[in-house]
């Protein structure tokens, strides 16, 4: 193919197959291209494989086929701990901070991938950006509230100034007020030029801040389009309810 492509995607997956056992693929051939500066939201019912998809990209779920490219570089086989220095930051869905370390230690740990002289400045910059964390840096992170935990998890991921950040359901378990705070924070991060991939169950709120959305169902992309268009599209309700599991009914209330 000759070049209609004008910019290198910030992230691209091709025919990505991933899962926890080789003969049981959870992600079944996902092609996704994310442009630099985009805020992409990944939607889909529970168990669709959203977490597995982003974990595979981050290197913490096994990949069985296909490829992942980060800003044009193949990172399919790069071990998880080297992805952060290559510019891919990941905030997992659960257990995304070190509860037995203090807030400051969580940040120091993350800063260890940077050259020594810049570490204190980077940590200070994050405290400026997340003043809540600066109140008691020596507090155990396990003692933080849900919203503060997410702040710390995001702060940790941002320490290297990554061009791309992937977040897995950062709003899970938070009160509506805190959810909107978290989403505002993500919008601000995105406004600084950082590409954001956001996995969400909070469909309405996520679509409001996203530029584009994909819907993952049973490990495959079932729909892809502009976020605003999807917001009033009945396809959303249909796709969610299409899986017909009782555990998805709680999400109906959030759908248009």
């Amino acid at each position: 193919m000759t070049g209609l492509v004008t910019t290198t995607p910030a992230l691209e997956t091709r025919a990505l197959v991933a899962g926890y056992e080789p003969d049981l693929p959870i992600v079944r051939g996902v092609d996704l291209s994310v442009a630099p500066g985009e805020l992409l939201v990944v939607l889909g019912p529970n168990g669709a494989g959203k977490s597995t998809f982003v974990k595979a990209i981050a290197g913490v779920a096994p990949i069985h086929g296909g490829s992942v490219t980060l800003a044009g570089r193949d990172i399919t086989d790069v071990p998880a701990h080297r992805k952060i220095t290559q510019g891919l930051a990941f905030v997992p869905q659960t257990e995304n901070i070190f509860a037995t370390l203090s807030i400051h230690e969580n940040l120091q740990l993350a800063a260890a991938v940077l050259p020594k002289p810049v570490r204190p400045d980077r940590i200070r910059a994050l405290y400026d950006r997340f003043p809540d964390l600066a109140i008691a840096p020596s507090r155990l992170a396990g003692a933080l509230s849900g919203g503060q935990r997410q702040m710390l998890a995001v702060a940790r991921a941002l320490i290297v100034d990554p061009p791309l950040i992937i977040l897995d359901e950062p709003s899970a378990g938070l009160s509506p007020k805190i959810v909107s705070e978290v989403f505002e924070m993500l919008q601000r991060i995105n406004a600084t030029g950082v590409t954001v991939i956001l996995v969400e169950q909070n469909v309405k709120a996520a679509l409001k801040i996203a530029s584009r959305a994909v819907i993952l169902v049973e490990g495959q992309i079932r729909h892809e389009g502009a976020a605003t268009a999807l917001l009033d599209d009945p396809i959303l309700a249909k796709l969610y309810l299409g899986t017909g599991h009782a555990r998805n009914h709680s999400r109906e209330a959030e759908l248009p």
């Binding site: 701990h81 997992p92 070190f98």
Partner: peptide, 24 residues
């Protein structure tokens, strides 16, 4: 020390330690 911090991090959550850049 940084190495001790990394060891405690790996002991709490090896997957997250890897994500945070620790060579487990």
């Amino acid at each position: 020390t940084s190495i001790g911090r990394s060891m405690r991090a790996v002991s709490e959550n090896p997957a997250l330690a890897g994500i945070a850049g620790v060579d487990v």
